[in-house]
């Protein structure tokens, strides 16, 4: 290949090889491309179409209208959106507060302990989702174990009404999404160079200051990734509010599900609400990433 006389022939051969390879890649990717297009992308088109139809008690009538959007704009669904947003935000914050020290501790453990601790975090996560929620219902219920324990210790006089409150929803949300925060945080903190902390302390920073000036800024990436992994799924929460919360504070996931499942159904409104949620998520992701990218680029610009 180093012989210049042959360069031309070789590059011809190379072009042919590249073409062959690309063709191969198309063949290999085709099944997944088709599958995901048909069952992930196309369904959203259907959602768009259905959002423009007229609702029926059971299904839809194929008549185009903006009725669903008009209904939404009337403000009836503002509260569920607000509640879901607040829930997602609170869940994310609690996950950061609880997850950060845990991720930090695991990241700073010895190799052997790291694996054990990580498995300990993941095991509950592998236990059935519904069953874990069910168990929380038992634990938090009015005559459940928590209340019994608190009563017998004399900390309270009458059972706490936790179940069927927003607090119960938050507790279980944090419980379910915590590993999604811990794992990305762990992977970032683990790569952190801990001699930087020595350096900060050497230069006069106390432990607290070293943490806020060095460790925290350098684990921003993990906090960002974890927050996305928690916040966005939390926004669409349905079953946790359904099993833990009450009917006075309905979240958007519940509204969508009711409109799909319960009679009288209203699929156009459910579709429109889903689309609005999708748009909100897209906006959050895009602004999040652009802020993130800008930071990176600014750093590179200054470097130049």
């Amino acid at each position: 290949m180093n012989n210049s006389r042959h360069r031309n022939t070789f590059s011809q051969l190379e072009i042919r090889q590249v073409k062959k390879r690309n063709l191969q890649s198309w063949f290999l990717s085709m099944p997944s491309l088709i599958w995901l297009t048909a069952f992930f992308a196309v369904p959203y088109l259907i959602v768009i179409i259905y959002s423009l139809l007229v609702s029926d008690i059971y299904e839809v009538k194929f008549l185009f209208t903006l009725g669903a959007y008009r209904e939404i704009l009337s403000g009836a669904y503002f509260k569920p959106f607000f509640l879901s947003f607040r829930l997602a935000l609170i869940t994310t914050l609690f996950c950061i507060i609880l997850g950060y020290p845990v991720a930090y501790l695991i990241a700073r453990s010895s190799e052997k302990w790291k694996n054990i601790l990580l498995v300990l975090i993941i095991i509950p996560f592998w236990t059935n989702f519904i069953i874990r929620i069910f168990s929380w219902r038992i634990f938090l219920s009015t005559n459940g174990m928590l209340n019994e324990a608190l009563l017998s210790m004399g900390l309270i006089n009458q059972p706490l009404e936790i179940i069927r409150t927003d607090w119960a929803v938050i507790i279980v949300m944090v419980y379910v999404y915590l590993p999604y925060m811990i794992l990305p945080l762990y992977s970032v903190i683990e790569k952190l160079d801990f001699t930087l902390l020595d350096a900060a302390m050497d230069l006069g920073a106390s432990e607290r200051k070293a943490f806020f000036k060095v460790t925290l800024p350098l684990s921003r990436e993990g906090i960002f990734a974890g927050s996305i992994l928690v916040f966005i799924p939390a926004l669409g929460a349905y079953i946790i509010p359904q099993l833990m919360g009450n009917q006075n504070s309905l979240y958007i996931g519940q509204i969508i599900t009711y409109k799909i499942k319960n009679i009288p159904r209203n699929w156009p409104v459910a579709s429109a609400l889903s689309l609005i949620m999708l748009i909100i998520i897209a906006v959050i992701l895009l602004t999040g990433f652009s802020i993130y990218q800008k930071r990176k680029f600014r750093r590179m610009d200054e470097a130049r």
Partner: peptide, 18 residues
């Protein structure tokens, strides 16, 4: 991966209905 499950559920339900 990051879409809430509910969106995938709703969209598939409507697809199958369609």
């Amino acid at each position: 991966l990051i879409m809430p499950d509910i969106l995938m559920g709703v969209s598939l339900a409507l697809l199958f209905n369609f």
